[in-house]
Design a protein around this nucleic acid. Structure first.
Length: 244
DNA sequence: AACACACCCAACCGCATCCTT
DNA sequence: GAAGGATGCGGTTGGGTGTGT
């Protein structure tokens, strides 16, 4: 018996065991994220830094949202992908609690396949009538400067990061300002949150409005910059060319 | 019940970019 | 500015599981 187990070839996929998860979780909670290369040495885990980082980021991190994608999330992924392509980390950044790996997998297994089928079966709208016809959706949507919004009492905290505004200004968000509620900044027309701090729609009061809301309304200026390499009027023109 | 096939998703890999010295 | 290490990202792999025959 024992011999058989020893001789049995090791699986190529080295799945994480619950005890390893516990070790990593405790270590990161105690020492913080970063220095992944040293995590394996210091924690006693026989894992590479990249593996530890990935496990933490995709699985162990607080506020990770697991389980089925909501229709809203799915819709957002479809629209974001239309605009950004395979920029999974960017797309995941708009889906608090979801990881890039999860979004990527979801796209590859559910949405990508369906979008291919959908082209042939446009009339089968019972499941996703919001998909109707992406081209039509895009054409009827007009550019408006903001993006997603949250209800006043459910706004996530902001942290000390640089926000890129539609007019091209960079605004440094200070940590101490972060306790002031509203994610929507009137003065900068920007909205931002991180998935760590923004425990997703459903868990929080943040809301996304779909169907009648313009496509661009899910994107903040940072995403526009990532998509088009510019902001403001220039981004608007680029956006229009994509839509048309 | 047994087998084959398809699907899902966690983990790995290689490259690009960022950061530190 | 250059070099080397750390980190981030997207593509791919492969093992587990579900489903059909």
């Amino acid at each position: 018996m024992e011999v058989q187990r020893v001789l049995k070839p090791q699986p190529k996929k080295n799945l994480w065991k619950p005890e390893e998860d516990l070790i990593l979780k405790n270590y990161v909670e105690a020492h913080g994220e970063g220095n992944w290369a040293t995590v394996s040495e210091r924690s006693g885990l026989m894992r590479g830094g990249k593996s530890c980082r990935l496990r933490w980021k995709n699985y162990l991190r607080p506020n990770i949202k697991r389980g089925e994608m909501s229709k809203e999330e799915e819709d957002l992924i479809i629209r974001m992908h239309k605009l950004l392509g395979n920029r999974w980390s960017l797309i995941a950044g708009r889906l608090p609690g979801r990881t890039d790996n999860e979004v990527k997998n979801y796209w590859n297994t559910h949405l990508n396949k369906r979008s291919l089928v959908g082209k042939r079966k446009a009339t089968d709208s019972s499941h996703h009538d919001h998909e109707e016809n992406d081209e039509n959706i895009n054409k009827k949507n007009k550019f408006v400067p903001l993006m997603c919004h949250s209800e006043p009492n459910g706004s996530p905290n902001l942290t000390g990061t640089t926000k890129l505004c539609l007019d091209g200004r960079k605004v440094e968000e200070k940590e101490e300002e972060s306790t002031t509620s509203n994610a929507w900044k009137e003065d900068t027309n920007s909205f931002s949150c991180t998935d760590m701090e923004y425990p997703i729609m459903g868990g929080n009061n943040a809301t996304f409005v779909f169907d009648d809301e313009p496509l661009i309304a899910y994107l903040d200026s940072f995403v526009l910059f990532e998509a088009f390499g510019c902001v403001g009027d220039e981004a608007y023109e680029q956006m229009q060319s994509v839509i048309e």
